[in-house]
């Protein structure tokens, strides 16, 4: 599903994901975790819809979370509040359990953010971003992305060709299957590489390799992008300043120490700035939807008026 935030300039999307993923990965404060988890989940809902989001998460992320949450107290035995003892004689502590849950949340939200990243940061946006810094590599990535579907197509043609000379082995012996698979890969390699010379010629003949190559893109950095970038930077600064005052300190070892709760002014500002930052895509998208609805109502009204005038 195309959301409004993905239509912003690639720099915006990249900056956003860089920030949220890094913060989610490195800061373990429970409030941060909660904010990040909530935002990532809501953005997933917007991008994938309810059904797909739940399916993805219940199938893969939930079991992962449980495993991680359980693994921590099994292998780590620090902390002071002993709850029970394992058969091996090692203690199970409250601190390790809490830390396990925090860890699991962290891991899960990183995955959720990456799910959004995959949908928003398409390959061409990535190539655009790095085209200026790494022109050869990004061109290579672009070419690889072109070759993969092309070669997959070739592979199908090759498989059909082999089938039609009686070398179909889909229900044959394993040894034949392997032999045939290797032959297909071999045909594919030659086919792809031998024809690649044309491509090199076509690149050279269009001046590839001249000095001063530029990188064209269909993306434009406009006013809307500038506005949201300023907002993002301000929020990020607020967040870092607030964070560096130590208001959001957390420690799980040896005892659980959480600062900033109950809320005071500083921690409140820090949390709020983080929440706003993480929720930006959701806010942008919802606002956009609201605007359209309002616009359409407006148009309808005008049309109605016009209709009355004409009749």
């Amino acid at each position: 599903m195309e959301d409004n935030f993905s239509s912003y300039h690639p720099v915006i999307s990249f900056f956003f994901f860089l920030f949220v993923i890094c913060v989610s990965m490195f800061l373990m404060h429970p409030v941060f975790l909660a904010i990040s988890f909530f935002s990532a989940f809501s953005y997933n809902l917007i991008l994938y819809g309810i059904k797909k989001t739940l399916k993805n998460n219940l199938l893969f992320i939930l079991p992962m979370m449980i495993i991680i949450a359980l693994a921590n107290p099994m292998f780590n035995h620090y902390g002071v509040t002993v709850i029970t003892y394992l058969p091996t004689g090692n203690p199970v502590t409250l601190e390790t359990i809490i830390y396990g849950i925090a860890m699991a949340t962290m891991f899960c939200e990183v995955l959720l953010w990456f799910a959004c990243y995959n949908e928003v940061m398409t390959s061409d946006k990535f190539i655009y971003l790095f085209g200026k810094i790494m022109p050869s590599i990004s061109l290579m990535i672009s070419m690889t992305l072109r070759f993969v579907p092309m070669l997959r197509n070739h592979m199908r043609v090759i498989a059909n060709g082999q089938k039609c000379i009686g070398r179909d082995t889909s229900n044959g012996k394993t040894t034949d299957k392997i032999k045939n698979g290797v032959k297909k890969v071999s045909i594919l390699t030659t086919w792809a590489l031998e024809n690649a010379i044309d491509r090199a010629d076509s690149m050279r003949s269009r001046g590839y390799g001249l000095k001063g190559r530029t990188a064209f893109s269909i993306y434009r950095f406009d006013k809307r992008d500038r506005a949201i970038l300023i907002v993002m930077i301000l929020l990020a600064i607020t967040f870092f300043v607030g964070n560096s005052t130590g208001n959001c300190y957390v420690s799980y070892d040896p005892i659980v120490k959480v600062k900033g709760i109950p809320l005071d002014l500083y921690s409140c500002i820090t949390f709020l700035s983080y929440l706003t930052f993480c929720m930006l895509p959701v806010i942008v998208d919802l606002y956009d939807k609201y605007k359209w609805k309002a616009l359409r109502n407006n148009i309808n009204k005008k049309e109605n008026r016009g209709y009355r005038l004409w009749t």
Binding site: T144, F147, A192, A200
Partner: peptide, 18 residues
């Protein structure tokens, strides 16, 4: 890098991806 080198690496990567 040479143009041809780029292409060969891209083709090999594509085969690996496949």
């Amino acid at each position: 890098p040479q143009t041809r080198e780029l292409i060969v690496i891209a083709v090999l990567s594509a085969i690996a991806v496949l």
